[in-house]
Design a protein around this nucleic acid. Structure first.
Lengths: 175, 175
DNA sequence: CGCGGCTATATCTATTTTTATATAGTTCTC
DNA sequence: GAGAACTATATAAAAATAGATATAGCCGCG
């Protein structure tokens, strides 16, 4: 329910094409919001019908024709009201989901599973860190995404140590 | 793509009905994975067709008839292979998305927006903390969800202080 | 005795998201 | 000059998710 607002937000920077928007999301908003072209183009068409963006068709310059979108005043209003709206807690987390069911593995396999999860977080972190840094609050959001991944790794590593210390430690401790 | 695995995981504890599964998710897996009945019942039917759960229809006892599901050996195998599979990084975060576009608000309104976000995280946290504590790795997952929310609040509060200290501090600092 | 709340299953619709595919010109590289 | 990569838009099909509604018996409360 947020993609249109993300697009409006990016268009507040400057007018862009659908293609530009995809790249901006990928480069500046990794871990904040990502979408495929197949979602972006229809979303832009809907925003246009809602009068929140304005379309200008540019003649083909270096390739096919381009559709350039810019935010309208109505679009800015919509974006502001979204910023003030409450966030619904996100209720799905693939990492926590994996860990939550590790009890069903025999103790010997848990360590390997935790390490595999840690590795994939590590790769993710490397990708995020190597991306070009945006500015303003977008930079703050990226920092927070990185911090969260690092905290996730620390957590996984603590679980590895606990399950190594005593096979049933995790199940036993009730702290 | 994980709901069937969550259901298999819960059914490894004990056989349950669709209704029980919804409650178990709500009570034990809040912030890990949640789903509506409209998703759970069809998912159970698919798992059954795939031979990963076995259905036993119980006669009506205290209400309508109940469909009790139990995991099969094939279901356990499927769950184990899912536990070993890599997690794809989640690319959508409503909180980070809100914050990422705070730049478009005038400085005077940013503080209020940040505080509103903080409040909704606070409510969320209270709900999570008051829930009954599960055991084993499920407890670890719940702890991590709580830690993450607390870290989110600390982050928001830091942003509040920064933007109070100097209106353009956030945009200016390049640390 | 009626009312609300709980247990329980199920469907319908709509929206969101993902994955795959098609087209086509341009620019860069070997 | 061939092929790869980039710019650019778009649709089809499938899957996942959300939200609402329907049914119906049971239980406890006042």
């Amino acid at each position: 329910m947020s993609l249109p607002h993300i697009l409006l937000g990016l268009l507040c920077d400057q007018p862009r094409t659908g293609y530009d928007l995809e790249r901006a999301m990928r480069e500046e908003l990794d871990h904040v919001w990502r979408a495929e072209f197949s979602q972006i183009y229809p979303a832009l068409a809907r925003l246009r019908r809602a009068g929140q963006v304005h379309l200008k068709v540019l003649g083909p310059r270096g390739g096919p024709r381009r559709n350039l979108y810019r935010v309208t005043a109505a679009g800015r209003r919509e974006l502001r009201s979204w910023l003030a709206a409450p966030v619904q807690p996100r209720s799905k987390d693939p990492l926590l989901a994996r860990v939550a069911f590790l009890d069903i593995l025999p103790q010997g396999e848990r360590r390997a599973a935790l390490l595999a999860l840690d590795r994939s977080l590590g790769e993710d972190l490397r990708r995020l860190r190597s991306a070009p840094a945006p500015a303003g609050f977008r930079l703050e959001a990226r920092r927070r995404a990185i911090d969260r991944l690092e905290a996730g790794r620390r957590w996984l590593q603590a679980l590895v140590h606990e399950s190594a210390a005593s096979p049933t430690a995790v199940a036993a401790k009730k702290k």
